[in-house]
Simulated scan of single mutants.
Amino acid sequence: MHKIMSDRKTVFLLMAPGMVLFAIMIVVPIVISFYYSLTNWDGVGEYSFVGFKNYADIFDSDSIFGLSLRNSLLLGLGLVLIQHPFAILIAMLVQYCGRWEKLLRVCIFIPSIISTFVTTKLWVSIFDTTFGLLNRVLTIIGKSDWSQDWLGSPGYAIGCVILVLMWQGFGYAFILYYAGIKGVPKDLQEAAMLDGASQIQFNFRIVLPLLTPVLRINMVLAVVSAFKQMETVYLLTNGGPANSTQFMSTYLYSKAFRESMYGYGNAISILLVAICLIVTVIMNRAMKREVGEY
């Protein structure tokens, strides 16, 4: 194996199919998208080149793009600061649930594998103004004055959307942390207990540092996914009311396919790719840490 890996020609031939597929599926579409981002094409017919006018318009006069970027950042912060710490805590607790461990593991992960359409419509029903479960519960407990048009109010809609998105993705975050925790050798726990460490000390001083590689991957995936959210937001609010729940992907879709500003939409898509790449590099460098072997 070492002899094969030291032969650059062999390594290149082995990598070539994957590189070609990557170029066809990723690089070429991005290049084409950048090409159209320099035009005023509406999706059909003729078009002309406008240079970087679309990019200039995005930064100079498009307040909704700024709002969509802010919402994506808010979701990213929610995932990093709320969802993932909670997922780590639940993953640590579930392993001590004995015979209920497998059942809890399945129940926590189920929302992540159910159809996005189904779970989204479930939440739409919960937030419904007239027949929604949330307003009914508030009425039952004597807090009917707290009832709101949750998805129809700009002040509450973005919070509801972020809540649903964090709930939907919680299972994936949990299962990765749970797998990392279960991979910690029992010998380490026994040695820590012999040294007088409590269960809490073992989890937070030994297990948590060993989860750094998993934590790094999960955090990067979480932030990148925050910028790519589309289906759930579209089904919940379609970016409304008054564009208060626009995310970068939904705004891109709206510009390209609803307003027939295909060139403008491609400019947003290029910025989306650039932001995801920059965030990935920054987070990887910020969280870079050498972790010793078990």
Rank of each mutant, 00 (worst) to 15 (best):
N218W: 04
A23M: 14
D187L: 14
V50G: 12
A192K: 13
K182D: 09
S153E: 11
N71C: 03
S61P: 03
I4R: 14
F174G: 04
L134Q: 02
Y47V: 02
S249H: 10
G196W: 07
Q95V: 15
C160L: 14
I278W: 06
I275C: 14
P213E: 12
L194C: 13
Y178R: 10
L21M: 11
L21F: 12
S153Y: 06
G265Q: 05
K102M: 15
W100F: 13
A192R: 13
G265Y: 04
A16F: 12
L272W: 08
F127Y: 15
G263P: 03
L208V: 15
S260P: 01
D42R: 11
L73Q: 03
G132S: 01
M230E: 00
I110C: 12
L134M: 11
I110L: 13
R99V: 06
I126D: 01
V20C: 04
S48F: 05
R258S: 04
L194V: 14
I90D: 04
I26W: 13
L69N: 03
F247Y: 14
I158F: 05
I200V: 06
G98P: 08
V20Y: 08
I88P: 00
M25P: 00
Q189E: 12
S63R: 15
H2M: 15
I26A: 13
L81H: 01
Y234L: 07
S260D: 04
L208E: 01
K255T: 06
V161Q: 05
L73G: 02
W41Y: 04
F109R: 04
L93E: 10
Y264Q: 05
M230R: 09
N218Y: 09
I282P: 07
S48V: 06
T130G: 00
D187H: 11
A222D: 07
G196V: 03
R289C: 07
Q246H: 10
G98W: 13
Q168G: 12
I268H: 09
D60I: 03
A91Q: 11
N40V: 00
L165E: 11
E46L: 03
T280D: 05
Q148T: 01
D187E: 14
Y251L: 05
I88L: 14
G196Q: 11
I26N: 15
F127D: 03
R70W: 10
T237E: 04
A256I: 00
E290W: 06
V50R: 07
V223M: 10
V164N: 08
V106D: 03
F59E: 03
P111E: 07
M15W: 08
E259Y: 11
L14K: 01
R205W: 08
I158H: 05
I282S: 09
I278C: 12
D128F: 00
Y253C: 05
V137I: 09
A226P: 11
Q201C: 14
L138V: 00
I141P: 00
M15G: 08
S244I: 06
R105F: 10
I32A: 10
S112A: 08
Y264L: 01
T280W: 15
L103G: 10
I113V: 12
W146V: 02
L77Q: 05
I24P: 00
Y35H: 12
I126H: 09
S72G: 15
V220N: 10
M230K: 10
Y36L: 14
T10M: 11
W41L: 10
T119R: 06
V50T: 11
I158W: 04
F34I: 07
A56P: 07
S37G: 12
S68G: 10
T212N: 13
